[in-house]
Design a protein around this nucleic acid. Sequence first.
DNA 1: CGAGTGATTGACTGCGTTCAACCGACGTGG
DNA 2: CCACGTCGGTTGAACGCAGTCAATCACTCG
Lengths: 197, 197
Amino acid sequence: MTQIDINILIVWGAVARKFKKGEMIFWEDEVAHFYHQIQSGTVRVYNINDEGREFTQGIFSDGNSFGEPPLFSQDTYAASAIAMTDAVIYKLNIEGFQRLLKEYPEVQHGFNVLFAKRLYDKACMAREIINSPESRILAFLKKTKHAATKEEGLFRIPYTRQEIANSTGLRVETVIRTLKRMVKENKVEVKGHKLFY
Amino acid sequence: MTQIDINILIVWGAVARKFKKGEMIFWEDEVAHFYHQIQSGTVRVYNINDEGREFTQGIFSDGNSFGEPPLFSQDTYAASAIAMTDAVIYKLNIEGFQRLLKEYPEVQHGFNVLFAKRLYDKACMAREIINSPESRILAFLKKTKHAATKEEGLFRIPYTRQEIANSTGLRVETVIRTLKRMVKENKVEVKGHKLFY
DNA sequence: CGAGTGATTGACTGCGTTCAACCGACGTGG
DNA sequence: CCACGTCGGTTGAACGCAGTCAATCACTCG
């Protein structure tokens, strides 16, 4: 699903910019100057702590926008964004974005709906903090399911164990061991290291 | 800060309803039929798991609205809401709410800003999952600060240790022991069991 | 005063982490 | 075609911190 129609974006001054795999798009605590919408590629929004441990706030791909909240709330970025693959991203400066919003109430409403869904997802992940690793992984798989491609009735989870760990706040080893138990109990399937749910 | 002007709310059909301390306002997984805005009292939005352990998603008081995301995203409630004190809450049915939104673009925009702030707060809490109890408690205190009343340059934290535990995903004992260490290191103050930050 | 709620303490436990090593698939360059 | 490097996945052993359990204390209010 595309957040804002490309043509409208361009008319209001958005510019496509290429990012190399691994290139930073913005940094935590920075002031937000641009609206970002992905034409192609995938982007990871994440935090990193003093010990170098990472937490993934979200992963975004074709058509998605990301890093928009500060454009509305005057906050700085709560996390950093990095290109996980080569990517092309439309950037529209905040002034243009705000004018566009005023002009198109449907777009305004579109962000209400988008933010509402994000809040729902965040709430679902947050409540897992008091649950077992298995429950936390299941919550992540459930949330991630709609983003996955279906193969023979099951969803192929396109993330590495490390990424699942970063998204759930667990460690890789815990994810691996928990998934193994879940395979035994027919809660997930693994074919050649690939994970299905 | 009041989310929607009371007079407008009433004109569009909102009705004030009293809730007794401990009374449920809505339940997790329920379909959302009403917009809720607090006139007086405080409300806790929370989850409870199979073992009876609770996680607090948010605490709201005078002027705040809560449980709005599903009105935009067609999701069910991600959590339950309960009156922590006797409370009076304006309720406006979803049809009225949606008509009101269409009529007042500023209100629409107000929700964008509100949701953006909530997403920021949720992101700040979420990233703490990979940090120490101390860091998690500090993040909570920081977020909660603006809601607290100032006394002699410090903020009186109006929550019990149990509530801090429920909000951070820690256990009461861990909160108590961590706070104790933080007092020694002058990171917080405690006067007669009351917590200051 | 007694009941009730919240705060506190100590002893023990166990689960997820940590650390270290190894495996296996894939791709690239000589 | 093979050697090698890289990246992700896997395993085992040991550890330690937050959780668990149970008891007691402190304060407030009717």
